[in-house]
Simulated assay, not measured.
Amino acid sequence: MKKIVLVIIIIGLLPIITQSQSFAKYENMKDVDAMVMTSKMFKMLAKVDLSEDNPEAREYLKLIENLEEIKMFTSTTASVRSEMKKDVESYLNSNSLEQLMRVNEDGKNIRFYSKGGKNDNYVSELFMFMEGEKEGELISVILSITGEIDLSQLSRLTSDLKIPGAEELKKVENKS
């Protein structure tokens, strides 16, 4: 009986483990630019001593303090872009993410998805996949931000990090 329960648990966790690994593989690929920031980095940034008279900076620190991880993978190589698209479709099919919006402009097709958070203004994951052109070159971008994410502050963070699709995130904020 214990073996049956263990097998059921493993089968239930397999999609989560597999999807996590499917994006992790991009971290060390030659033709992929990867950026991964962890909760440890956010907690370190949150300890930066700012004066009390700067509420904007305090709000910004509050946002990053509640983040768990930001992963961004970009590639201009056709075979990698194709693999990214396949992995994204698989990830979206096996996770409970809701589509927030689609944007198709300026040669870019951008889709935003989210996983619910503590209330309507927060999400526990914001996921973006972009296919298109940047500076005359075909590009694909996978972005995953996890943690307690305040949608009203998110575009500010992504703009500061120079993440493709940051401008479109302002539209997500307005829909929340």
Rank of each mutant, 00 (worst) to 15 (best):
L14M: 11
F127Q: 04
E83Q: 15
G132A: 06
M35V: 13
L67M: 14
K175P: 04
Y60W: 13
L63Q: 10
L161D: 04
K40F: 15
F127G: 06
E98F: 11
K115I: 10
L169I: 14
K175E: 14
K86R: 13
T76W: 03
M130T: 00
M37H: 08
G136N: 00
E65F: 11
Y91M: 05
E65C: 08
E65S: 14
D106R: 07
S22E: 09
Y113H: 02
R81E: 07
E137I: 09
N119H: 06
G147F: 02
K71C: 07
L138I: 11
T77W: 02
K170G: 12
E52K: 11
G117L: 08
E131D: 12
Q153L: 07
L97M: 10
I8V: 15
S176L: 15
M41Q: 09
M101N: 09
N54M: 12
P164N: 02
V32Y: 01
S124Y: 01
F23V: 10
L169T: 04
A34K: 08
D87S: 03
P15K: 00
K85C: 04
M1C: 15
Y91V: 01
Q19Y: 08
S94T: 12
V141L: 03
K118M: 05
N121C: 07
N119S: 13
D150K: 08
E98Y: 06
L157F: 04
K171P: 05
L138C: 05
N104W: 09
I110T: 12
M101R: 06
M37D: 00
N119D: 13
E68V: 12
Q19R: 06
V36A: 00
L13W: 01
S96F: 12
F73A: 07
K62H: 05
A57R: 12
M101E: 04
T74M: 09
R102Y: 13
V141H: 02
S140W: 00
K40R: 07
S159P: 03
N174A: 15
V7E: 08
A166Y: 00
I139D: 07
M84E: 01
N95I: 04
E27M: 14
F73P: 01
E69P: 01
R156A: 12
M128V: 03
E59G: 13
L151S: 04
S176P: 06
L151K: 11
S144D: 11
I139G: 03
M72A: 09
G132F: 03
S155W: 04
Y113T: 04
I70M: 11
P15F: 05
N104F: 14
G136L: 00
S155N: 07
